[in-house]
Simulated scan of single mutants.
Amino acid sequence: MFKTYVPENHDAKWILIDAEGQTLGRLATKVASILRGKHKPTFTPNELCGDFVVVINAGKVNLTGGKLDKKVYTRYTGYQGGLKTETARVALNKHPERVIEHAVFGMLPKGRLGRRIHTRLKVYAGAEHPHAAQQPEQLEIK
């Protein structure tokens, strides 16, 4: 009989990504892939094996076409008639971190593992972040 090899040691690194001038969807796919650990040879789909990702300059991300005015984010307050909507332009001005978090969260697996992976994403509107002690590696996205 053969035994299935399952890697046990998943060393999580910290990766820093600058979102300035990046397209939202392309940035989100790269971030989701790193969070899941698909860039590692020890990738296991049912385990937490990805890296921590710090995204800075979230307010300077690009949306192509007419998405700034046509893309709509909706949320439900819990009350009757409490469906609130806002365009991507308003969302980027008010809370740019949530725009990237929303795009990345939709690309992660649904369920317990996806929620645990989502906690490894740190997004900041400006260039400053409090994770300098973790010595994140700068990653250039072309």
Results as ranks from 00 to 15, higher is better:
Gly114Glu: 13
Val90Trp: 10
Ala133Phe: 09
Leu92Ile: 05
Val72Trp: 03
Leu63His: 07
Leu108Ser: 07
Gly25Leu: 04
Pro7Arg: 08
Ala88Glu: 00
Gln22Pro: 06
Glu20Gly: 11
Phe52Glu: 08
Val61Lys: 01
Asp18Cys: 10
Ile117His: 01
Lys70Asp: 07
Leu121Thr: 06
Glu137Tyr: 12
His10Met: 00
Ala125Thr: 11
Tyr79Phe: 14
His10Phe: 00
Glu97Gly: 04
Met1Leu: 15
Lys13Phe: 15
Asn93Arg: 09
Gly66Leu: 14
His129Asp: 02
Thr23Val: 11
Leu113Pro: 01
Thr29Tyr: 11
Asn46His: 15
Gly111Lys: 04
Pro136Trp: 02
Gly50Asn: 03
Asp51Glu: 09
Lys84Ser: 11
Leu68Ile: 12
Gln80Phe: 13
His102Gly: 01
Arg89Val: 03
Ile141Glu: 11
His95Gly: 02
Ala32Cys: 07
Leu92Gly: 06
Met107Asn: 15
Gln135Tyr: 05
Ala127Thr: 11
Lys122Glu: 09
Ala32Val: 04
Ala132Ile: 14
Thr4Asn: 13
Pro7Leu: 13
Phe43Ala: 09
Leu24Cys: 03
Ile117Gln: 07
Thr87Phe: 02
Glu86Tyr: 12
Leu48Ala: 08
Pro96His: 04
Thr44Arg: 02
Gln138Ser: 09
Ile141Ser: 00
Pro96Gln: 01
Lys94Asp: 09
Pro41Ile: 06
Thr44Ala: 09
Thr44Cys: 10
Gly59His: 04
Lys30Trp: 12
Thr85Gln: 15
Gly126Trp: 03
